[in-house]
């Protein structure tokens, strides 16, 4: 290594002695910690890759779904069965096209939530982080804010761009998509909020398990395996319990009218809220208590 080293530290002589012992300087206020967490967030290439892939997947699926929906509508013109299917959907197939990639956004950004915290522990960064912020919870909350806001923004923006791409494709098939309609706006905001909630659950899992693979597997288990397993296991209990899984709250939250066999909107909102609050609070309690 050919690095040159100066023996003389930049702190001038007597600087230490001259410092005011009572007031050493600014400490870790919440906004400073938030700024630090944002710097940590944007300076990791892997984070940027995951955000970009979310956008690509959502816009790509939006376009693909627009094409597929158009094909289906074309068919409906000559097929009474398909026409009936469209009618039963309230006649508007196009409105949900921009959010058709949301399931993948939820998987990618949920994993990002896990990784941002688990990597602190797997790399040893946590020791630096919590030495700078020994109260620990400000750092956790700051990271949670960064994770939740970025997941919401990326999902919402990707949904909008997917919409912009879909409009001309749908237009080719004579289908109309109004991105400013109240249902379009609702879908965009609710899907963004839902993905942000999944990212928060992911971050809580990353904090609790402190392991990237374990955290992601737990997340996949909860959102992708449990709904299918609950469906396959016979019995009324599992049929009922299935509605309360976090992944099954999105349907009632985004539907125009109540969908049978799902929760009411207010119930779904409460259940999803509980799925976020319980692991997050548990993660905060244990983060405060456990050794780093």
């Amino acid at each position: 290594m050919s690095t040159s080293t100066s023996t003389q530290p930049a702190a001038g002589p007597g600087r230490a002695a001259a410092r005011n012992a009572a007031n050493p300087g600014p400490g870790p206020s919440f906004f400073r910690v938030l700024n630090s967490e944002f710097i940590k967030f944007r300076t990791l290439l892997s984070t940027m890759i995951l955000l970009a892939s979310t956008a690509v997947v959502m816009v790509g699926f939006g376009a693909l779904s627009a094409w597929g929906t158009g094909q289906f509508a074309d068919q409906a013109a000559s097929d009474p069965g398909a026409a009936e299917a469209i009618a039963s959907q309230g006649g508007d197939l196009a409105v949900s096209v921009p959010t058709s990639g949301a399931a993948f956004a939820q998987l990618i950004l949920g994993s990002l939530g896990v990784l941002l915290m688990s990597s602190e522990f797997t790399t040893g960064m946590a020791r630096s982080t919590f030495a700078a912020v020994p109260k620990r919870l400000p750092a956790f909350i700051a990271k949670l804010v960064v994770v939740v806001v970025s997941a919401f923004v990326v999902t919402a923006v990707s949904t909008y761009v997917a919409g912009l791409v879909s409009v001309p494709i749908l237009d080719n098939f004579g289908l109309k998509l109004d991105l400013a309609s109240s249902q379009s706006v609702k879908l965009l905001l609710v899907t963004g909020g839902y993905v942000a909630a999944v990212a928060a659950i992911g971050m809580a899992l990353g904090t609790l398990l402190r392991n990237s693979a374990g955290g992601i597997m737990a997340l996949v288990g909860l959102f992708f395996v449990a709904p299918i397993a609950f469906q396959l296991i016979p019995g009324e209990f599992f049929e009922e319990a299935r509605k309360y899984l976090p992944g099954n709250t999105i349907t009632p939250l985004t539907a125009v009218e109540h969908v049978p066999d799902t929760l009411e909107v207010w119930q779904a909102a409460l259940v999803l809220g509980a799925w976020v609050v319980v692991p997050v609070v548990l993660a905060m309690i244990l983060l405060k208590k456990r050794d780093v």
Binding site: G25, P26, G27, P28, R32, V33, N35, S36, E37, I39, K40, T43, S128, A132, V133
Partner: peptide, 9 residues
């Protein structure tokens, strides 16, 4: 170092 420094301005 920048991220560490940010916590204390």
């Amino acid at each position: 170092l920048l991220a560490m420094a940010a916590t204390h301005s």
